[in-house]
Design a protein around this nucleic acid. Structure first.
Lengths: 282, 282
DNA sequence: ACGGTGCGATACCGTGCGGGTATCGCCGTG
DNA sequence: CACGGCGATACCCGCACGGTATCGCACCGT
């Protein structure tokens, strides 16, 4: 199976419409139809149930959609990582480390400092990204290694080492009634009609419906908290980056957050290995 | 990047010889040379350092070899799983479970029995394979889920759930001096010149050099033990399948063996999920 | 009931790319 | 120094892939 065919298939499977899929692929509809039915013939299986007015995935099609997406990502990751490895002087190829902007900054600083002192250390480019984006960045090859946060980030398919575990705190606007408490429970902070939790964008950039404000990054969120529009529950160490006009209150029963260092399991990079070794020794 | 190009590249990277690689690919050498240099141009990077008498991987080439192999495996897995999903009647697609022949037989029986009793259970095909082969079978899509044994099998890249942990026993020919002992240490059993550990085939079917006999499956191995030619260290539960003319002695300091159920992290199969759920509840 | 419309399938055509053969250029070797 | 082995280059050919035109079908509205 060629990646071209897989891309065709995935486009049709997403659109469930040959015409629109063809448009998205920048081609005409007939060759797309032909390519799909040729693929079906080669696989010995229908991938779509289609009459002239509806297109639906078969069971086999659903399998190919899940598996094929993963495969396409692997191919693209291979391409990106090769490009990156090639655009560096030989023997000194850097690594890209993906971290959530504003998270684990102290740990990150210690890690970078300790790693730089290692013999044979290589330049580390830090790729700052939005919440939950590290996973995608690491999967698609834009990064070689990442700091993720369980249980928020999905670490499936990566090798990981735990680095630290911490409790969470609620971050509230100054003067809010709850700020007088010395600690809160999750029941206290979820479902506050006056202070709904913010909504982060999905992978495709869209927002799920809900009462909270739509946010895109941390500064935006902090600003909305100071304005008394929302609140958040975050790991304890984020306390160090808060402005003076918000208040942090521990939430002992919130799920503890574990910061892990993650890398693709087939990584053969000595630099990634050294970075991981350094991280686990902190 | 197309999988065709990747296959070309991997062939050359393995052979480090354009002529032989072309032969293996069933094509002539010139188009292969052209394809590789076109790929290099598209990636903006040399993949091989080559003069007229030597071909060697560049750093970028090494990256592409590791990443590209994983990507090709993902594509082939997608293809196999789709074929399998398509060759079953709709809604009743079976699952393939890979297990090492002769291992965890009691656990396996309990699992199959318990799963069959679940509502919505689906036929489970058991794929019996040689030691360490499960990983490959699961990675390349011939199986959907597998029972693996840490620390022997490499579970990197899979999601896993631990099922059981057990100690190991040494399996010796009856009458051997060590069989009088009530327990042994690893130091006792490794490096016995008279009873060298057997050698299992590599993934490519070849054997590493060493003193032990070359074995291919369990019955062969057991027979060699009864003949007094070798011995083995195996999980405790394998005791139930031993013939009467061998002796098992506990080895408390051997690394404990954990049987895990493993599946590809992107699996969307409800049947696999149900099987895993059943397994963890045993 | 019937023409309209939207969509996938089919028919047919041109071209560019992938593969083949012949040959060159380079270098290590007896 | 002639030879042989190997990768690169030159050139040619066939076909597979993509485009346009059109068909067939099913669901509409009137």
């Amino acid at each position: 199976m060629e990646t071209r065919e897989l891309r065709f298939f995935v486009a049709v499977a997403q659109e469930l419409h040959f015409g629109r899929a063809a448009q998205r692929l920048g081609m005409a509809q007939p060759p797309l139809s032909r390519a799909i039915s040729l693929l079906e013939r080669r696989l010995g299986t229908r991938l779509f149930d289609r009459d002239s007015h509806r297109v639906a995935l078969t069971d086999a099609g659903a399998v190919l959609l899940a598996e094929g997406r993963a495969a396409l990502e692997a191919v693209e990751a291979a391409e990106r990582r090769t490009r990156r490895a090639g655009s560096a002087e030989p023997g000194r190829a850097g690594v890209v480390l993906a971290v959530k902007a504003g998270a684990a900054s102290e740990l990150l600083a210690k890690l970078l400092h300790a790693y730089a002192a290692e013999p044979g250390a290589v330049p580390v480019e830090v790729f700052l990204c939005g919440p939950g984006e590290q996973e995608r960045i690491l999967r698609d090859g834009r990064a070689d290694v990442a700091l993720l946060h369980r249980p928020f980030d999905n670490v499936a398919g990566f090798d990981t080492e735990d680095l630290m575990t911490e409790g969470q705190i609620a971050i509230l606007p100054a003067g809010h009634p709850l700020t007088t408490r010395t600690q809160l429970s999750m029941a206290d902070v979820t479902g506050l009609a006056a202070l709904p939790m913010p909504r982060w964008p999905d992978r495709d950039g869209s927002y799920a419906p809900g009462p909270g404000p739509e946010v895109r990054d941390h500064t935006q969120l902090i600003q909305l908290i100071t304005l008394g529009r929302t609140m958040m529950v975050a790991p304890e160490t984020s306390r160090t980056q808060l402005p003076p006009d918000v208040v942090a209150v521990p939430v002992p029963d919130a799920h503890p957050v574990t910061t892990v260092i993650a890398w693709p399991p087939h990584s053969r990079s000595p630099a990634v290995a050294a970075l991981v070794r350094t991280a686990t020794r902190l």
